[in-house]
Design a protein around this nucleic acid. Structure first.
Length: 261
DNA sequence: ATGGTCGCGTAGCGA
């Protein structure tokens, strides 16, 4: 069994107390981190490697930054989303890892927020989603287990947000955003959540402001997108809500899939 | 109620 998790930690250095505790307790085999807000110079390699993980990052100072942690060695690493050589934001890293019955591929994705919409930031979001679609289409041709995991900054449906009317003008919920997300799914990917759960009100993010966590005013924006070969082999899906409690939590919680790879 | 909270880095932006 391979346990694959995604977690937007909102600064890996500030979150190390929570990250090390969760890694020890949940013991995932592969972890996709987003918003590490660190470069290779400042990333806490030692503490994470001490817990038994190999670490690869695409870092950036102050903003963004993604990482993949794996108990198994990496067979291949790709840094950056193809399709725009001028894009300097660190939002994509991909790895091939050996499973028990052959290799599987995992990506750590930090899709742009896109607010305010409309505007140049929203244009960047939509263009980034187009690039992701092109790349996902190419990856699906391998016909292998593939898990595209991360903070998509997309609320797929009304059931995935506490108050849909409040989000109509938000880049995370605008019709064009959701349509593009459906286009990506339409390539032949399945959302792990929809496959295994699908209920309304299952959130992965609660804002720091306005007592959102205490009032359960959340949104579901962290997703695992699966190729058919991964969908066929998922055995468990969990949202680790308890990490939203405690001292200095991230505003996102881990989303975890277990696979018979 | 046009606020409110984080993180980075030390002003103001991004979320």
């Amino acid at each position: 069994m391979i346990k694959i998790a995604t977690w937007n930690v909102n600064s890996v250095r500030t979150r190390m107390h929570a990250v090390t505790k969760w890694l020890s307790e949940a013991a995932p085999d592969v972890v996709c981190l987003q918003e590490i807000k660190s470069t290779e110079e400042t990333f806490p390699y030692m503490e994470i490697e001490a817990l038994g993980y190999n670490v690869e990052i695409l870092g950036q100072k102050s903003y963004n930054g993604v990482a993949i942690l794996s108990k198994r060695p990496f067979e291949e690493i790709t840094k950056g989303l193809p399709g725009d050589d001028t894009d300097e934001q660190a939002r994509y890293i991909e790895a091939v890892i050996a499973g028990d019955n052959g290799p599987f591929r995992v990506a750590s994705i930090y899709l742009p927020n896109g607010n305010p919409a409309p505007g140049p930031k929203y244009d960047y979001k939509l263009a980034w989603m187009d690039r992701l679609k092109v790349h996902a289409k190419a990856l699906l041709k391998f016909e292998e287990p593939l898990v595209l995991s991360g903070d998509y900054n997309v609320i797929p449906e009304a059931k995935d947000v506490y108050s849909p009317p409040d989000w109509l003008g938000e880049a995370l919920y605008m019709p064009k955003t959701r349509a593009k997300f459906r286009e990506i799914l339409g390539l032949g990917l399945t959302e792990a959540f929809e496959q295994m759960d699908g209920r309304a009100g299952q959130y992965t993010f609660w804002d720091y402001q306005r007592g959102a966590w205490q009032n359960n005013e959340g949104i579901r924006i962290d997703h695992l997108l699966l190729s058919p070969q991964a969908t066929d082999n998922i055995v468990k899906f969990e949202i680790h809500k308890n990490t939203r409690d405690g001292i200095k939590p991230s505003d996102h919680v881990p989303v975890v899939g277990t696979f018979d790879f």
